[in-house]
Write a protein that binds this DNA or RNA. Sequence first.
DNA 1: CAAGCGGGACCTCTCTTGAAG
DNA 2: ACTTCAAGAGAGGTCCCGCTT
Lengths: 360, 360
Amino acid sequence: MYLNSGHSVTLKDVATRAGVSHQTVARVVNNAGKVAAETRVKVEKAIAELNYVPNRLAQQLAGKKILSIGFASIDISLHTISAIMAGIKDQAQQHGYSLAVSVMDGTDHQSCVRAVNELVEQRVDGIIINSLATHMSTEEFKQLNLSIPCVFLDADPNLNASQINHDQSQGAYLAAKHLLDLGHRDIAIINGPDQIRVCELRLHGWRQALTEANIEPTMVLNGAWDAQSGYDCASRLLSQGNSLSAILVGNDQMSLGVLRAISDRGLQVPHDISVVGFDNQDDCAFYHPPLTTITQDSGELGRQSVRLLLNQISEPSLDQHQKLANSIVVRGSTKALGEENGNKQLIESLMRQLNLALQR
Amino acid sequence: MYLNSGHSVTLKDVATRAGVSHQTVARVVNNAGKVAAETRVKVEKAIAELNYVPNRLAQQLAGKKILSIGFASIDISLHTISAIMAGIKDQAQQHGYSLAVSVMDGTDHQSCVRAVNELVEQRVDGIIINSLATHMSTEEFKQLNLSIPCVFLDADPNLNASQINHDQSQGAYLAAKHLLDLGHRDIAIINGPDQIRVCELRLHGWRQALTEANIEPTMVLNGAWDAQSGYDCASRLLSQGNSLSAILVGNDQMSLGVLRAISDRGLQVPHDISVVGFDNQDDCAFYHPPLTTITQDSGELGRQSVRLLLNQISEPSLDQHQKLANSIVVRGSTKALGEENGNKQLIESLMRQLNLALQR
DNA sequence: CAAGCGGGACCTCTCTTGAAG
DNA sequence: ACTTCAAGAGAGGTCCCGCTT
C-alpha cells in the first residue's frame, strides 16, 4: 500500500530515475539556477512518479534558512490560549515563519524547561513562552539559559526579558470604577485561583479603585475559573446574608455561574445585583442578561508577541516590555444603584410573562 | 547577550572543550555505552558550560528513531477542535510520540494538501487529518498520494481510508427522538452551514426520527455556528408566527443565541418552547435554562484517533473505520408538551420575583 | 563567457568497527 | 577478554566551484 516502505524517497533516487545529477534535481525543486526546459520536464516527471517530498530536516541541517518560531505554552485547549495561538500562527505565517508548538504538562518550572528545550532541539529562531510558573524570577529565568531570542507572555513584570501582556490591573481598575460610578459600595470579589499572577494583578486593580473611593470589598473569594466554581462562590456569598449590590468576577466563565446562582435565589441581575466579568469571551453578549465585562483581544496579543519576537531576533540585545490596554464593554448585567427606571421595566416584563403563563 | 551567535553549539564543540572525542560526548548525552565516571564528569561540565542542547534535526537525520505524529487540521482555535487536539497530544505523549501540528488556512482541498505536506516534510511517522474539505472523494484522497499512514477525522464514510468520527446521525436521532417522546410535533431545525458534512449527517439523523414519527419539520434554517446566528435564525422563526413547540439546534453556541431570542420575545424555555443543542460544551449546564444537549467527547475522539493511527503504523495494510456513539444529556431546556406542572412552578416563580420588585 | 550540468565538501548527529589500555 | 575511547561512514540535503558545449 505504501511506496518506499522503510525510508523515504531521496533527491538521489529522483536523480537516478531522471538520469541526471542530484544537483540538477535540487535546481528544479528549489526553482533556482538554470535548467533546460527538457531536463526540467524529465525531473518533474520523476518527482511525480516517485512522489518525492524534500526532507526538511536535511534541508535545515544543510544550512538552508528555514524560518520558524516556537510557542511554549500551558494547556492550549483553554479558550484564551488557543485564541492567542491563532494570533501567533497568523502573524508568523504573514512573515514567512512556520510555527512549532510545545505544550507543558504542568505548571511547575520543570515542565516549562522541558517544553522550551523541545523547541530549542528543533532549532527554532525564537520562542514565545506562555508559562504559568508562578513568579518565575530572573534567577529561574537564567536557569533556562536561553541562547535564542524569546518573548514572555504574562510574565512577572520584574523579569528581565522581553515580555508582553494585557494590563490586567488597568482592566480590573476599569471594572471596579464602572461599579463605583454607578453608585455601588457593597462590592464582593470572586477572583481566580490564588497564587496566579494574573489574579493578583486583577485583584490589585480592583483594590486600587475601591481604596481610592475609600471602601473595602465586602468579601473576596477564589474560584477555579470555571462556571461551577463561580456558581459555588456566589451561592456562598448570597447565603451569608451579606448586603451586597455588586460582584466583580475574575473571568466570564465564572460570571456565567454567578448569574445562575443569583437567578436560582430568585434575585435579578442587574436589578438586585450587578455583575462585571473579565475577558469578553465569545458568547457573553448572549448570557442572561448580557454580561458587562472587560475586553481583552487575545488574538492581538498573539500577533504583537510575534512582532516583538521578530524585533528581538533581528536586534537581540533589545529587551522590550509592552502592555496592551483593556477596555470595558457595558452590557446588561450592571445598572446604577437605586435607579428605579429599570425596576419599572422589570415589573412590566414580569407581569407580561405572568399574563402569558396564566393563559396557558 | 546570547552565546554562540550564529550557529549553535555542537557535539564537537563539547568534545574539544572536554578534551574527548565526539563519540564519548554522545555516550554521555544518550546515556548509552560505558563511560568512565571521571570522563563523564568532564563532559557534563563542558555541556553545562556551553549550554549544549542536541540538534534533533541531525539526530533524526542520522537515523535515531524519534517517534512523532502529525495533526493537520482546520482552525484549531475552535473549541471542539482544540479539545480534540488536547486528546491527541495526551495520547501521543502516553505512547512516547511527539506531536507536530499544521493548520490549514482554508477549507479547500489545496490548503489541506499544503498542511499535510508540511508534516510529510518533517518526516512524521503518521498523520491525523481533520479537513473540512467537503466530500473529499477517494479520488482526491489519492491525489494526496500519502506514503505514510494516516487517519481521517469526520471524513466521508465512503472514503477508502482509516477514519474515525462521532456518529452524528445517531446523536441527532437521539435529540429528535427525545422531543418526540415528550409529545412535540411542531419542530423547527436550526442547522449549521450548508454543505458541511457534519451538518448533513445531523440533518439526516433528525429527519429520520421525524419521518419515523410521520411528521415534517416545521422549518429548516442554516446558521453559522455562532450565538449571533442562532439568535438571528430563532428570531426569524418566531416572527413568522409559526406554531412551533420545539427547536433542534446544530450546536450549543447557536443554542445560546436561540435561548436569548426566545426570551427577548417574552417567551419562556421550556414552557413555551423546548430547545435541544448539540456538543455539550463546557458551560451549557449553566445556560438559562440549562441546556438539554447531545454529548460528544472530543478528547476521546482525539485519543482514539491516535490509537487507530498507531495500529496503522504497525500494520499499514489495515484500514479501520470507527464510530463513537453519542448520548443525550437532559437538562432544563426541554419539557413534555402540555405538562402543566411546570407552568404552576413558573407562575409561582414569577410572582415571587414580582413581589420582590414591588417592594423596592 | 554565457547557459546547463556534475562533483564534492559540509551541516550535526548516530552507528558500526576496531584499537588501545 | 574486558573496558574505554576514537575514527569513519552514512543520513539527505545545500552550497560553492568547476567542467563542458
